[in-house]
């Protein structure tokens, strides 16, 4: 049995968008939880921003590894906003569906499992834009001087980079969740992912704080810097097109890996019954 076709026929696009809408509505019922999380993001914004600005103030020329205070503030606060859009740390429904065996029902649907999961997650990200993205950034703008790019096309590039980072983040999580077909419990992998995506993605500190060889390795060999560091560097005008190009490359690689894994996983499900 071959894996179901990975393309979306034009007629299915409407179904896909409907699923995105359903995902949006589903997560928008958790408005209070989103407010709570946005509050937490704002507290972390204060913590991280204070630390980085204090370090920058004590350093040479009032900058930290080349970021001026306004760039640092933007970096920290927008990264706190992005957490709720990229949703790095939330496991996909897929895990529960595999564990409970409901995944078999998904195979009967006319749409591929990956697209169904992606639609739900895009709905979640859209809802994330409403509260989780805007609230921390607003708080940051009130209490700190943020760096605002002067050229309009930078904002456009940032939006593109953000969308791509949502997709890269989704594929990474999708691959991890697929591991559930082989391992009953993926908590260990997940902890590893949480560790890497945050730290190596540039959440705690901008990556240039690390030794150069490590930063280069991360950029060349892993998708992690593309999650936060990449889009944020686009926004504070330290990088531009290169980030987006790299995101597209990784998107293709991760897509290939996930299709391969999904094909094997489903074959395993069909042949061995899970």
């Amino acid at each position: 049995m071959s894996a179901p076709a990975a393309s979306i026929p034009a007629g299915s696009l409407r179904a896909f968008l409907a699923l995105v809408g359903a995902g949006y509505r589903r997560f928008s019922t958790y408005r209070q939880a989103a407010l709570g999380s946005a509050f937490t993001n704002a507290v972390f914004g204060f913590l991280r921003c204070s630390v980085l600005l204090t370090v920058a103030a004590a350093g040479a020329g009032g900058t930290l590894v080349g970021y001026n205070p306004a760039q640092l503030a933007t970096y920290v606060w927008v990264s706190q906003g992005l957490i709720g859009v990229i949703n790095f740390w939330t496991q996909l429904d897929l895990v529960e569906r595999i564990k409970s065996g409901n995944i078999a029902a998904d195979l009967l649907r006319p749409m591929d499992i990956m697209w169904m999961q992606l639609a739900t997650e895009l709905g979640r990200s859209l809802f994330g834009l409403v509260l989780r993205f805007t609230l921390p950034i607003t708080v940051g703008a009130i209490f700190f001087d943020l760096y605002l790019p002067g050229k309009p096309h930078v904002y456009l590039l940032f939006v593109v980079a953000m969308v791509l980072s949502v997709l890269v983040g989704f594929l990474c999580r999708y691959i991890l969740c697929l591991l559930c077909f082989w391992f009953l419990d993926i908590r260990g992998f997940w902890t590893a992912w949480v560790l890497c995506s945050g730290l190596l993605g540039g959440l705690q500190f901008p990556l240039p704080v690390w030794p150069d060889w490590l930063v280069t390795t991360l950029w060349v060999a892993t998708p992690f810097p593309l999650l936060l560091q990449g889009p944020l560097d686009v926004l504070v005008e330290r990088e531009s097109g290169a980030v987006i190009g790299l995101q597209v490359v990784w998107l293709v690689i991760l897509f290939g890996v996930s299709r391969l894994m999904q094909g094997r996983a489903l074959r395993k499900l069909v042949v061995q019954g899970g």
Partner: peptide
Amino acid sequence: ESGDIANAFTYGGRDFTAYPSTMFH
């Protein structure tokens, strides 16, 4: 439905206490 508001003070508290309080203003 409080989301992860608790993390602001648990993990947030850990982050705060890992540095001298003089780093904050």
